[in-house]
């Protein structure tokens, strides 16, 4: 009796086999090139690999991969190899990805990608750093206020274009010190920062120019009566983004974000960013 579907079985491959690593690196490259929000991720561990033979030719690598968030924003053109992994003390975020990668004539192509991301537990964070603030909800009023103050401070001090907020990508609130730390992405508009009267009338430049900011906001305290804001922004060279899709966690948020209480649509790009592709091509959920 012949086995059913002869020739369609899979072969198990060592997760640390160079061929597995090669497929995983192609998958990670694909993931990062198609991210438009949150942070770039780097390979941490290959969990499982099955290699299926494909008719008439080729092989499909079905892989489960664990990733870790880096400190480079998705819009940052820095190669991920040069990005630092987010440390445990900064409240690390991991990704859990399923990929299908086709190997044909020695070339790897991603056919399917799906990633969920989730922050490390608050308990784990306390173990490594009892005083480190955990990730905060991105729509927390303190976070929103800190981002507004930081962006205003940046626009007030810049001599160039007025920058609009693209997304808040990360936030931590240190209640003891009354400080809120925020990270957010910005985009240049056709308005001059020092001349803006109505930001709503500013339009994004045709050739998109993005930036990434880290800010902190200190609330007024009973002793210290002044608010303080500090912000540092890096403006990236103008860039042509690929047609993008999102990487979502189980709560419907992008990699690097805390679960949000609102039911934001899944994989909806933020304003000013390209929509997901329609039609044929690799599927990125």
């Amino acid at each position: 009796v012949s086995p059913p579907n002869p020739g369609l079985g899979y072969r198990a491959l060592n997760c640390d086999d160079p061929e597995s690593e090669q497929a995983a690196l192609v998958a990670m490259d694909y993931l990062n090139k198609n991210l438009f929000r949150g942070y770039k991720h780097t390979l941490n561990q290959i969990d499982k690999v099955k290699v299926w033979s494909r008719r008439p030719t080729g092989e499909v690598f079905e892989m489960e991969i664990d990733t870790l968030e880096t400190t480079c924003h998705a819009l940052d053109p820095t190669p991920v190899a040069n990005c630092s992994v987010r440390s445990l003390g900064e409240h690390a975020v991991e990704g859990d990805c399923d990929f299908r990668v086709l190997k044909l004539d020695g070339q790897f192509t991603v056919l399917f990608a799906k990633c969920d991301s989730s922050p490390d537990s608050a308990e784990d964070l306390r173990k490594v750093c009892p005083d480190c603030p955990p990730l905060a909800q991105l729509n927390n009023t303190k976070v929103v206020h800190a981002v507004e103050a930081a962006l205003t401070a940046f626009n007030t001090q810049t001599n160039g274009s007025y920058f609009q907020l693209v997304e808040v990508s990360r936030a931590q609130i240190a209640y003891r010190t009354r400080m809120t730390y925020v990270e957010f992405a910005i985009a240049a508009t056709d308005c001059v920062a020092k001349e803006v009267t109505d930001p709503a009338k500013c339009n994004l430049l045709a050739e998109k120019q993005y930036g990434f900011c880290k800010g902190s906001f200190t609330e007024k305290g009973p002793v210290n009566g002044n608010e303080k804001v500090a912000v540092t922004c890096t403006v990236f060279p103008t860039q042509q983004l690929p047609v993008a899709a999102g990487v979502d966690d189980k709560e419907g948020n992008t990699a690097g974000e805390e679960p949000q209480p609102d039911n934001s649509p899944v994989a909806t790009p933020p304003a000013n960013l390209p929509e997901a592709p329609v039609g044929s091509g690799p599927l990125l959920v």
């Binding site: 997760c15 640390d16 597995s20 941490n44 561990q45 969990d47 870790l68």
Partner: peptide, 27 residues
């Protein structure tokens, strides 16, 4: 490997094919 029948041969290290190595740290 050649071993005398009376000498017990210690089993070699078991290679776990998966999951693979952790490059940074595990959450």
């Amino acid at each position: 490997n050649v071993a005398q029948p009376s000498v017990a041969v210690a089993p070699g290290p078991v290679v776990q094919p998966c999951p693979g190595r952790i490059r940074h740290f595990k959450i």
